[in-house]
Simulated scan of single mutants.
Amino acid sequence: MENKHIIPLFLRSGKHIPNNPDLPLMLYKQVFTDQKNLENKFKASFAEHNWRGTWTNGVFDYHHYHSTAHEVLGVAAGSATIQFGGPEGEKLEVKAGDMVILPAGTGHCRIKASRHFTVVGAYPAGQEKYDICTEEDDAEAKKRQIAQVPLPATDPIEGANGPLLQYWQAKNSRSSFILG
């Protein structure tokens, strides 16, 4: 990763969106400073570090989360405001070159986006068959599934020694990162 500006954010559980009680959302700012071929760069890095089920599209414009998988979103083009954590959550601006890693249970919803906003998404190996949960799902029941999702073996950009694993294994420092 060319720039190591990483922001960990814990999000409080909402009324209908559980978020993750143990793991922070990880916002990596400007993973690739060279903006050429970002889609291919994200796809190649995700594949190299065993993040699978890669897709290219946008982010849904309704609050949703995954209770069976962690997810990475690499912003390949444009910019957007995405609300993380559900209707009570945090609105963050992301732009081409940024990346967000969502622990299982983290709500996300596109609020607004530029015309060509595009993300590359993927999931840790073995978690490619993710579910899509909404505010209509039983958040308490989903929390049990979220607790069973294993940590990824690698950071989607830096592999086995990447910052994701360091942050997600340091669960005891959570109080300094809580937002929402």
Rank of each mutant, 00 (worst) to 15 (best):
H66N: 13
A80D: 02
S45N: 14
E39A: 10
P103E: 01
I7W: 04
L179N: 14
G85K: 08
E128A: 07
E71Q: 14
R174K: 13
L165A: 07
S114W: 01
D98L: 03
S45H: 14
D131N: 15
D98M: 01
A69H: 12
A104G: 03
A96H: 04
G180N: 15
L151N: 12
N40M: 06
N40A: 06
S114F: 00
E158S: 12
Y167S: 02
Q148M: 10
F117P: 02
K43D: 02
T106A: 02
L165H: 11
T106K: 03
H66K: 07
K143G: 04
F10E: 11
T33E: 14
K91H: 07
T134W: 10
L38V: 03
L164P: 04
P87R: 04
G58H: 01
A44P: 07
L9T: 10
A104R: 08
A147V: 07
L11M: 12
N57Q: 11
H116A: 02
N19Y: 03
R144N: 11
V94Y: 02
C109W: 03
T54I: 15
G126K: 07
R115I: 04
K43C: 08
K95T: 14
H116W: 04
L27A: 07
G86W: 02
S176D: 13
D137A: 11
A77K: 13
K142R: 15
K43F: 02
G105V: 03
K171F: 06
D155I: 02
T54R: 07
T154S: 08
A77P: 09
Q166A: 10
G14R: 01
D137Y: 09
A170F: 11
A96Y: 05
E93T: 13
G126H: 12
L9C: 09
G78R: 04
A113Y: 01
N161Q: 10
L164S: 03
A170W: 14
H16M: 12
T106V: 14
V72N: 01
H70M: 06
T118A: 00
M1E: 09
L9Q: 08
I6F: 09
E90D: 08
Q127W: 05
G159C: 06
F42P: 01
E135Y: 08
S114N: 05
E136H: 14
I82F: 02
Q30C: 10
D34Q: 09
L9M: 14
R52N: 09
Q35I: 10
G105T: 10
E128D: 11
H64V: 11
Q148L: 09
A125T: 12
Y65V: 11
G107F: 04
S79H: 12
E140N: 13
F177W: 14
A104E: 06
E48K: 15
G78N: 07
G58K: 03
G86Y: 03
Q35Y: 09
K112D: 12
S173A: 13
K4S: 13
S67I: 05
E135K: 13
R12Q: 14
G180D: 14
G58F: 00
G78C: 05
A122V: 10
V94W: 02
F60H: 11
K95D: 08
E71R: 02
N50M: 12
P87D: 08
T81K: 11
